[in-house]
């Protein structure tokens, strides 16, 4: 059993490490510091941490202003409140002037659990991906989280990094290199390709095992870099495997699935299935129950692969 770590815990620790290296880094939160783990940074660097209270829109404006004066602001909130709740502020105060603001959110997706629909961001990838100048990253595990956060701090411009609440198994080891705009193959295969992000990457690994027992060999691509998206890897996967399944803890509208579909439609139309939330709001329940009923697990990925393989054969590829 792989080691389990919460990406937000890794994030909290990474901020402290990076804070020591970059004296211009400042961290902002809106009354969720205890949950997003920015509280750890505040204990280490109290003079560089600012809790704006419950005023997310205001917080984005503060970050924008701070960045114009040479600071590297890292802004944290729950994903729902760091995206949709502040969409226009992110769009016009951060992305339009292309400011050096890092929005790093936690508690994304339905795996928030019992808090229910109001707290379950299933639309944030869609929103943030649509903004010019924005970079969007959804790390798959703790190792990738640390690398992606470091990359964001060391790179100019707006970033949106999406983390969850749960402990996740590690899918990478320390040798893993995060490269923006590149998908990383976790497994090679010729029958179909699963392109996944976040906690769905590990589900894809499980799905691939089940499929291989049935003689189906899938490639798995980790699409942590949602924007920019790795067009080459998608086109290559389409050419070499002829069928694509995307998997994300997000609505099937506007997220990773859409990003991949856009590339395929323009370059190489290919049978495809999207695993994700099917255009509905979330609800209360345990994370495990919710991931099951919304079809965000290995079982659903296996079903989608089998379905897409049917279409691949029909097409006579």
């Amino acid at each position: 059993m792989a080691e389990m770590v919460a990406t937000r815990d890794v994030y909290g620790k990474a901020l402290i490490k990076l804070g020591k290296i970059y004296p211009d880094m400042v961290v902002l939160d809106a009354d969720t510091a205890s949950s997003t783990r920015t509280q750890w940074f505040s204990q280490e660097f109290p003079e560089r941490f600012f809790n704006l209270g419950i005023s997310e829109a205001n917080m984005i404006g503060y970050a924008a202003g701070l960045s114009t004066c040479g600071k590297i602001p890292v802004v944290s909130a729950f994903a729902c409140f760091g995206s949709g709740r502040v969409y226009d502020q992110v769009k016009l105060s951060v992305c339009w002037p292309k400011l050096n603001v890092k929005i790093i959110v936690t508690h994304a997706g339905v795996s928030v659990g019992e808090d229910g629909a109001s707290h379950q961001a299933i639309d944030d990838i869609n929103l943030m991906r649509g903004l010019p100048n924005m970079t969007v990253i959804v790390p798959a595990d703790g190792i990738e989280t640390e690398k992606a956060v470091r990359y964001a701090i060391e790179t100019q411009g707006p970033f949106y990094i999406r983390l969850g609440r749960l402990n996740l198994p590690l899918v990478f080891d320390d040798t893993y290199e995060f490269v923006l705009g590149k998908m990383h193959a976790l497994r090679e295969g010729t029958d179909a390709t699963i392109i996944a992000c976040g906690l769905m990457v590990n589900e894809s690994v499980k799905a691939a095992q089940t499929l291989s027992e049935q003689g189906i060999n899938v490639r798995i691509l980790n699409a942590s870099s949602i924007k920019p998206i790795d067009k080459q890897a998608i086109i290559l996967a389409a050419k070499e495997t002829g069928a694509i399944v995307t998997a994300e803890e997000h609505s099937i509208i506007g997220g990773l699935g859409s990003a991949v579909a856009e590339v395929l439609a323009e370059h190489l139309p290919t049978p495809m299935e999207r695993v994700g939330v099917k255009d509905t709001f979330g609800q209360s329940g345990t994370p495990k129950e919710l991931l099951r009923i919304f079809g965000l697990d290995a079982v659903s990925i296996v079903e989608a692969v089998i379905k897409v393989l049917g279409r691949k054969t029909q097409k006579g590829r």
Binding site: E114, G116, Q283, T286
Partner: peptide
Amino acid sequence: RKLGSILQGHPD
């Protein structure tokens, strides 16, 4: 707060 409940984690 349980799955399918009429009493959600936040008022619905």
